[in-house]
Amino acid sequence: MSTEASGTVGMADWVEHTWDGKRYDEVTGPKQTTGGMTTTYRGDLEATGEMRFLMSYPDDASCRSTGYEVVTGTLAGRTGTFVLEHVGGFRDGVAEGTFTIVSAGGDLAGLTGTGTVRWHQTEPSRYTLDYDLA
């Protein structure tokens, strides 16, 4: 039986560049970028994350993304590290996506689950996580 966790997620750092090293916002039109961000999770999950991602923009107003994030913190009173695989995109001022736990260690060894994240430019960013912890 899975347990649901939820809370807010904040972005502490964001770096994104095109393949040739230009800032993502210096290039208009279709492009591909790579980057990283540092996140802070609050709520049922108290943790920090380091994410690396790839993004593909068909235009300046939207994109698709995929990436991996190493999350270190405490969930359900247990401390450890786990890796999330993210798939998502950005459109109309909202970045949202899904993620899957692909590995876990420390007191969180055996953690499995899936979740969602929604980043809105004018609202607090939120996550949900449905998980099982052996």
Rank of each mutant, 00 (worst) to 15 (best):
M1G: 09
S2K: 09
T3M: 11
E4I: 07
E4F: 02
S6L: 00
V9L: 06
G10W: 01
M11K: 03
A12E: 14
D13M: 12
W14R: 01
V15A: 11
D20T: 14
G21L: 10
G21M: 11
Y24L: 10
G29N: 04
G29I: 11
G29S: 07
P30R: 10
K31Q: 13
Q32E: 13
G35D: 11
G36K: 09
M37Y: 08
Y41A: 07
G43S: 03
D44S: 07
D44K: 01
D44H: 09
A47I: 14
A47T: 11
T48Y: 12
M51S: 13
R52Y: 12
F53G: 10
F53L: 15
M55T: 14
S56I: 13
Y57N: 03
Y57Q: 04
D59P: 00
R64C: 02
R64F: 12
G67E: 06
T72N: 08
G73T: 09
L75A: 04
A76H: 10
G77M: 13
T79P: 07
T79A: 15
G80E: 09
V83I: 15
V83Q: 12
V87T: 14
R91D: 04
G93A: 04
V94N: 03
V94L: 08
V94E: 08
V94F: 04
G97S: 06
V102T: 15
S103M: 11
A104H: 05
A104R: 08
A104Q: 03
G106I: 04
D107N: 02
L108G: 02
L108R: 03
A109H: 03
A109L: 08
G110N: 02
T112E: 13
T114D: 12
W119K: 02
T122V: 02
P124Q: 01
S125W: 02
S125A: 13
R126H: 07
Y127K: 03
L129Y: 06
D130Y: 05
D130V: 05
Y131F: 15
L133P: 00
